[in-house]
Write a protein that binds this DNA or RNA. Structure first.
Length: 467
RNA sequence: GCAUCGGUGCCCGAGCGGACGAAGGGAGCGGCCUGCAAAGCCGUCUAUCGCGGGUUCGAAUCCCGCCCGGUGCUCCA
């Protein structure tokens, strides 16, 4: 039984899919007006892990994650650099997709763009107008009438009055709106902005309606999980919910929100100017280190990703790789040799699943993996090849369910300069056999300078490139 | 202001009433292994679980108060 925290109900609940054995998942993606930062990475990793784990559990997952490619900020950016909105969106969308892939985030089944769904948004808006839960303000746009949706405020856990407090002072309210909380479904066209035709006036869609159109359109009514970053709870997700349900549609059955990434104790945000780009981290670190660092904290707690956290996680990843390398040095006869899983692999698997079933307890799941790796290393020390191979296979399988690829890195047989390096390694081995340790150590430090690390194992000297 | 989350060892970070005599990772130290290393294993070191009350047979875990910090309140992943 898989349990997840539902933001709407404010408690961990059993995941009861619309169709047993299948889970439909919609995750809010980014507005592509700039390069992705660590916050985007965390959200993407969170749902990538959810999806991979469910799949590992035998659930058939259909995942949709959108890209918002029409928005005020994209328009502003285009104006700023004298390019087109389409160009800005295409460019940053490409970067987003590419960098997430480098992070090991699998592509969703569908990655719809808002601009591809304008027709659906127009008809949805028409439906809301027809139902009398939305109204037109000439020259301004079409607005959702919050007063017609009594449940408004439940997702963020606030009353409508509470939502207004402190907010009114910050935002200029159009006094033609019936309620300050009313929000735009459609924005009237402005000179030079991307514009589409609509029965009421030419213009462009508001933000929230795109997700409603795409989620309902691709996953259908009453889809299982809607996720995103916790900063989207209000207003974005609450407005989506209001729109869909006011139109008489059953929306998400469960709401998930991943927590923020902080920088020096404060939320990382483009608007705060303190963000760290994904590209920076990817360039400096093994992408797996970033993923592990995120997995070692629960998805609902705020994390701080700094050099220390990254270095610590990188060391952990290396430890797992080293285990794989040690097993590999056995000259393993491929696979688990048909042996029945040893008890400890079963225990690890059970601990892993129990942790993950409980609201995606990745920290405990990761702990189970490290425990198993240690156990496998002991098997190795005791010359139990079958046990060690089995342990590695299990470690890799469980890591795979978290999107972490573990294996021998910097492998000698894939190295460009392998012949030259191997020659020196052989020379060193010869020197060692002759007990000429001075020469042997000289060669070792020479190779170390060149970024080659040596390990003398019972099966011979293994080397790998570390940089 | 209102709402909400959190304060656990040297660092990160789980746990959220009973095998906690507090997971896991990282760092340190000692040992084994090694020609020496590396890797690995074993052992070990830092924890009055923010502070003060309370409930309970029993609290890191529940309640009350206080202190400190984060986040949200129509830019946001």
């Amino acid at each position: 039984m898989i349990r997840l925290f539902d933001t709407l109900r404010r408690e961990v609940v059993e995941l009861r899919p619309r169709t047993p054995g299948e889970v439909s998942l919609y995750v809010c993606g980014p507005t592509v007006y700039d390069v992705p930062h660590l916050g985007h990475a965390r959200t993407a990793v969170t749902y990538d892990v959810l999806r991979r784990y469910l799949t590992w559990r035998g659930v058939d997952v259909k995942m949709v994650s959108n890209i918002t490619d029409v928005d005020d900020k994209i328009i502003a950016r285009a104006a700023e650099e004298g390019s087109s909105e389409a160009d800005v969106a295409a460019r940053f969308s490409d970067v987003y997709v590419r960098e997430l892939e480098a992070l090991g985030v699998a592509a969703p089944d569908e990655r719809p763009r808002a601009t591809e769904y304008v027709d659906e948004m127009v008809s949805f808006t028409a439906e809301l107008l027809a139902r009398g839960v939305a109204y037109v303000i000439d020259g301004a746009g079409v607005y959702f009438d919050v007063g017609r949706y009594p449940d408004y405020g439940r997702l963020p856990g606030r009353s409508p009055e509470g939502l207004l407090e402190g907010a009114g002072a910050r935002v200029a309210v159009d006094d033609r709106k019936r309620d300050p909380l009313d929000f735009a479904l459609w924005k009237a066209a402005k000179e030079g902005e991307p514009t589409w035709d609509a029965p009421w006036m030419p213009g462009r869609p508001g933000w929230h309606i795109e997700c409603v159109a795409m989620a309902l359109g691709l996953l259908g009514d009453g889809f299982d999980i809607h996720g995103g970053g916790s900063d989207l709870i209000f207003p974005h997700h609450e407005n989506e919910r209001a729109e869909a349900e006011a139109a008489g549609r059953r929306f998400a059955r469960l709401w998930m929100h991943s927590a923020m990434v902080n920088v020096e104790g404060e939320k990382m945000a483009k608007s705060a100017g303190n963000f760290r780009t994904l590209a920076d981290v990817l360039a400096a670190q093994d992408p797996r280190a970033l993923r592990l660092a995120m997995l070692q904290a629960h998805y609902r707690t705020t994390i701080e990703i700094d050099e220390a956290a990254l270095a610590s996680a990188a060391a952990g990843v290396q430890r797992l790789d080293a285990f794989a390398r040690r097993v590999g040095a056995l000259g393993a006869p491929g696979g688990g040799s048909g042996a029945a899983p040893t008890p400890d692999c079963g225990e690890a698997r059970a601990a892993f699943a129990a942790a993950m079933d409980d609201d995606l307890g990745t920290p405990a799941a990761v702990a189970a993996i490290f425990d198993l790796a240690r156990w496998g290393n002991v098997r190795l020390d005791e010359s139990d090849a079958v046990g060690a191979i089995e342990a590695l296979a299990t470690v890799q399988e469980l890591c795979g369910a978290l999107g972490l690829e573990v294996g021998p890195t910097g492998r000698a047989d894939e190295d460009d300069g392998r012949d030259a390096v191997q020659r020196r390694v052989d020379e060193r081995d010869a020197a060692r056999r002759a007990r000429d340790y001075a020469t042997a150590d000289e060669i070792r430090s020479e190779l170390a300078t060149a970024g080659i690390e040596l390990e003398d194992t019972p099966a011979g000297t293994v080397w790998r490139r570390v940089r």
